[in-house]
Amino acid sequence: MLVLQVLTNGILLGGLYAVVALGLALVWGVLDIINLAHGAFIMLGGYLTYYLFTGLGLDPFASLPLVMLAMFVLGYLIQWGLLNFLVRAPMFNMLLVTFGIDVVLTYLAQIMFSADLRTIRPAYAGSNFTVGGVTVPWTNLLAFVVALLLTGLLALFLQRQRWGRAIRATAQNLGAARLHGVPPRFAYALTFGIGAALAGGAGTLYGMVAQLTPYVGVPLTAKSFAIAIIGGLDNPLGVIVGGLVLGLAEAFGSLWLGPTYRDAVSLGLLVLVLIVRPTGILGRAS
């Protein structure tokens, strides 16, 4: 029974992890940019949801599209006004600048929102149902469904949409994007904007199951790396696999070895995947 419950916990956690990593994986896979400010975007999305909820009484699930739109605009502007100027620089320059953005956003958040712990608590938060002795929290289940939905939508967009195909072409080479009638600068900004929107959506879901402080970003960025790499960057569905693997590894590592070993387990797994199969479980063999 305990094993079944832990399995359920791990799967639900994995769903949340997947949506947390989705934006980072997209930007990394398509633009070859590692966005160290990813976690800060999630944090901002969470705060936006919090203020829409406490200020306007807007249900978090209803505010999801609004938050994503706002974060899209922010992401678009950051890529267009700043990161586009660094695309051809050595790779660690981009890492440093996104780190700088992370620091700036985190401390702006501290100034604007204070270091108080914030929680988003709609009336149904914490409600659950029981199936065969296993307790399933509704919020986590809904978050899981939204994660699948967003991932599916992104996959469809990249496969079917004209702009989606242009974005993927940009990933292959800059000239190809022009053939699709999309200027590369626009394609970059669009992709980064979508990545930020997905991070914002993740923030909405994250804020419903955990507390928000200005400092939640960095651990979330770290988790996102692990998930993106374990799942592979070729396919958005990879994050679902990566999220589930990490969620289950943490849940069972915590059960069998003890809660202090969860990080050692998940990071050890990450290093192993990187060394043995750097393109991820779903990725093409290198």
Partner: peptide, 18 residues
């Protein structure tokens, strides 16, 4: 606000004196 400014210094340094 020291950290905030240090973040800005990093961005400016990388952008203008890579």
């Amino acid at each position: 606000v020291a950290s905030l400014f240090f973040g800005l210094v990093i961005i400016a340094a990388v952008l203008f004196t890579p």
